[in-house]
């Protein structure tokens, strides 16, 4: 099994440690991983802003770069969801889209494909899980609070494999943090207020760390935490799962 590591643009520039943790964790679990250097961005930022047509060439490029792999795995639920749900439409009429069926978020891949049952690391801290919107409602990493389906969380299942960890969830466990890409610029006041509310609820759990499968949400809340001088720390869920590696 050959896995292409997809490191989304903002993770690449802002949170390379998340990419490193992904690589380390996958290789530690015996996966054959490669990082294709030609990769750029999936095209979600422009698309959510209303310029999906600009993303078509990025989709074609992504397809070229990654179609040779068995799986395309990245530490970003939102980007993986974008590829999975939108690429078939973006590439419609050009050629068959292969990557939409191969792309997975790290949590999904670890939980559903590798079916990880133990992890070597220790993380003796209290963490609050951020159930990011696209992770919950597009990829199904956890059960959406709106639905009447059995409650589950692949994120919590994995985190609980780490020794010493205490996993919590905020009140309103999957309400949006207000990032939403260009939404955060278009609707600045509402976006900041959503972020403040979300951050407060995470902090009310008593968590030392806020963690989740999307660095973009974490980045948004981190910006607000820094602005308000709150000491709470942020770590991508893969960094915690890769603790000790």
């Amino acid at each position: 099994m050959k896995v292409g590591l997809f490191v989304p643009c903002y993770v690449d520039a802002l949170y390379p440690e998340v990419g490193v943790a992904s690589y380390k964790l996958l290789t530690a679990l015996g996966v054959d991983v490669d990082y294709p250097l030609e990769q750029t961005c999936c095209g979600q930022p422009e698309s959510n802003g209303g310029f999906e047509d600009m993303a078509v060439s990025q989709a074609e490029h992504f397809e070229d770069v990654f179609k040779g792999f068995d799986y395309v795995v990245g530490p970003s639920a939102s980007c993986a969801a974008f590829v999975k749900l939108n690429y078939p439409r973006l590439l419609h009429g050009k050629h068959e889209c292969e990557t939409a069926g191969k792309v997975m978020d790290m949590v999904e891949f670890l939980h559903d494909v590798l079916k990880v049952e133990s992890l070597p690391g220790r993380f003796p801290h209290v963490v609050s899980v951020h159930n990011s919107c696209h992770g919950v409602r597009e990829l199904g990493l956890s059960s959406p609070s709106e639905r009447n389906i059995p409650v589950y969380s692949k994120i919590k299942n994995l985190l609980n494999l780490v020794e010493g960890i205490t996993v919590r969830e905020p009140e309103r466990p999957d309400e949006c943090c207000g990032f939403g890409g260009l939404f955060s610029v278009d609707e600045k006041e509402v976006s900041v207020k959503m972020g403040e509310d979300k951050l407060r609820r995470h902090m009310e759990t008593g968590a030392e760390y806020i963690t989740g499968p999307d660095s973009s949400c974490l980045m948004h809340m981190q910006g607000i935490a820094k602005n308000g001088k709150h000491p709470v720390k942020f770590k991508h869920v893969v960094e915690i799962l890769a603790a000790g590696l």
């Binding site: 490191v7 802002l14 990419g19 250097l37 600045k188």
Partner: peptide
């Protein structure tokens, strides 16, 4: 980006 949020800090080196 506006008031109420600080900008994220860039890493010294990208993953790439």
């Amino acid at each position: 980006w506006g008031k109420g949020r600080d900008l994220p800090e860039f890493a010294k080196e990208s993953f790439h």
